[in-house]
Structure formats: structure tokens, C-alpha cells
Amino acid sequence: MKTLFCIGELLIDWISTDIDSSLVDSVNFIKKAGGAPGNAAISCNRLGGKSAFAGKVGNDAFGLFLKETLDQENVDTTNLILANEYTTFAYVSIKKGGERDFIFMRGADALLRKEEINLPSENAVFHFGSATGFLGGDLSETYFKALDYALEKKFFISFDPNFREALWPNPEKFIEFSKDFISKSDLIKLSEEEALLISGKKDLQEAIATFKLKKNAIVCVTLGKNGTLLYFQEKLEIVPSISVEAIDTTGAGDAFIGAVLKQVCDKTPESYNEIKNYVSFANKVAAISTTKLGAIEALPTLEQILKY
């Protein structure tokens, strides 16, 4: 089994408990551990995988809470660095159907330098799923250097752009950077919104056709309750999901990619049917994750998946 190596932000999600309320109107909030790369690492581990996380948090109560959260999930935190800057926050409100409203207050995650971390030298799958990885600062430089390193080592590379409109009112740079990562990745996970935004197309099939892809690259466009549009080895189809009553979709995409990558760490897929089975399983993991409040707390274990 390979180790899933995730790099990017780890943060505090302040989630409004005022259901179907915007952030303008929300009053009550609860503290949750969050950040897409950390969520993906935990998703992998809860399904029986092995993961490591590289990032930076504040040397404060919130950063220590986040480190403890990963430690409790058996995520390797050797490359989780404590900074003097404050821990990054995200404020989240939940609307009907589980849709979210975001505001970010960026802190320590931006300060991660490559010299501070030790990248794995073998038996690794690299996942780039940071919502803040393209925003500048030391993390962006580290992000691109880590990509070059993974390419040099010929590691399996996964990319999830995690677009947040609040972070990118002018998304031109986001689109440029995403296209670069897409062209160099073995697995690309996109939402429907991201696929259309990055490609500039209005149709998903056209969007995928415009991407410059590596040979045998896997593209997964998640469609919520409708499943996932899978492209692999020139085949394209929607892999259905299961029906659930969604409460909170926060982290569902991270649950999905963590589930796919756990299976990739076990065995790199070689056929269309193999990756289709990976995606079908990941759809189920993601769907079940939406039935509880919070990102990490809602990530299901393998035992829960088998019982569902």
C-alpha cells in the first residue's frame, strides 16, 4: 500500500448552526476542523488507508486542536508546521439542500516553505487539493515545487482545484494554474462548476475534450446526487450515486477524492471497469458524508459504508 501525501491548508471551519441562513444573518457558530487536503487524508485513513499531511497552522489553541485532530485519525503530521501567525479560519453557513456560503480569513497556511518539509522519496501518491494553494505566498511556491518533485519521481498525481468564488473574484489566474496542474496530473477531480469555468465551455463533454491530459489520465466531474461523470481511456459515462437526505455537503468532494485515492494507493487502476468501480465506491462514501453536519465528523469509516 502506498501512502497518500496531501499538501495545503488545514483550518478551522466556523459553521453556522442557524440552518438555512446566510452568513449575514447567522449568529451561532460551532468550531470544526477543516481544510480540503486534511479532509482527504482523513477520508483515506477512515477507509483503511495510510496518509500524511504537509501544511502550516498557528502555534495557538486552534492549530494545536487541528494537529490533535489529524493525530487522532492516524494521519502522519511530521510535516505539519506550527507558525507564529494565527491559524486560518473559514466561516460557513448552510442553506437548504446542504449548499454553503463561505468567508475565509487566511493565516498560517500561506506561510509553508518547501525547506520546512520532507517530501516522501518512494511509495507515495501525491494529492494537490488545496483551496488556497494558488493564492500566493510561500504555500504557492511550495505547491508548484512539490508538483515538480512528484513529476520527477513519477509518482501518481491527483488534483482537485477546490474553487471558491469568495477567494477568486477574478479567476483568470486560478484558471491558468488549474490548466497547468490538469495537464500534469493522473487523476483530476472537478465539480461541474469548476469544469465549465476552467474550460470556458458550457457543456461538460466539450469541457473535458478541451483539457490537455496525460495518457490514461482519469477525469471525475462530481455531479452531487446525480453521481460522477467519469472519463478514462476515451470512455465517458455517468457513474450513479445512492439516494440520501443531504444535511451538509461540506467536505463531500474531499470524502470522494479520499475514497478514490485510498483505492489508488492499494492498486493503480489499469482498466476502465476498475476505475469505474473505484468511482462507484467513492460516490457512496461522498453521499453518506452529506448525512451529518461537519466535514471531518461526517467522513464515514469502511465499516459504516459496508453497513449502510
Rank of each mutant, 00 (worst) to 15 (best):
L11D: 13
I242K: 13
I182N: 04
Y149M: 07
A287K: 02
S191G: 15
W14N: 00
V219E: 02
G55P: 08
V279Y: 12
G137C: 09
L299E: 14
I81L: 06
S26L: 02
I188N: 13
V239M: 08
A259C: 10
G63R: 13
P169V: 03
S289E: 11
P161Q: 07
E297S: 11
Q263V: 08
P120A: 02
K179G: 07
N28F: 04
V219C: 08
T268N: 00
T228P: 14
E116R: 02
L82D: 13
C6K: 15
F89K: 05
A108L: 09
Q233T: 03
A217C: 10
A90T: 04
G38I: 08
A131K: 03
L190E: 15
Q233E: 12
K179A: 03
K95C: 02
L190P: 15
E297P: 08
L293A: 10
A61E: 15
F155V: 09
I15R: 07
E116F: 08
S289G: 08
S140R: 15
N118T: 11
K284P: 01
S199H: 12
L112K: 03
N123Q: 06
L10M: 12
S140T: 15
Y143H: 10
I238K: 04
K212Q: 15
Y272K: 02
L47M: 12
L204R: 00
G224C: 15
I275S: 09
I198R: 02
L261V: 02
G227P: 11
A131C: 10
V285Y: 01
N79P: 10
N45A: 14
E297A: 06
A36L: 09
I198D: 08
I12C: 08
K267F: 06
N283G: 05
E176W: 06
S158Q: 10
K284A: 01
L70Y: 10
I81Q: 03
L111P: 00
G133V: 12
D101C: 04
V260Q: 08
C265A: 09
F156I: 06
G294W: 10
V24P: 00
S121A: 03
G129R: 02
A108S: 12
L236G: 11
L236H: 13
A41Q: 03
K284C: 02
E274L: 11
K31S: 09
K67T: 09
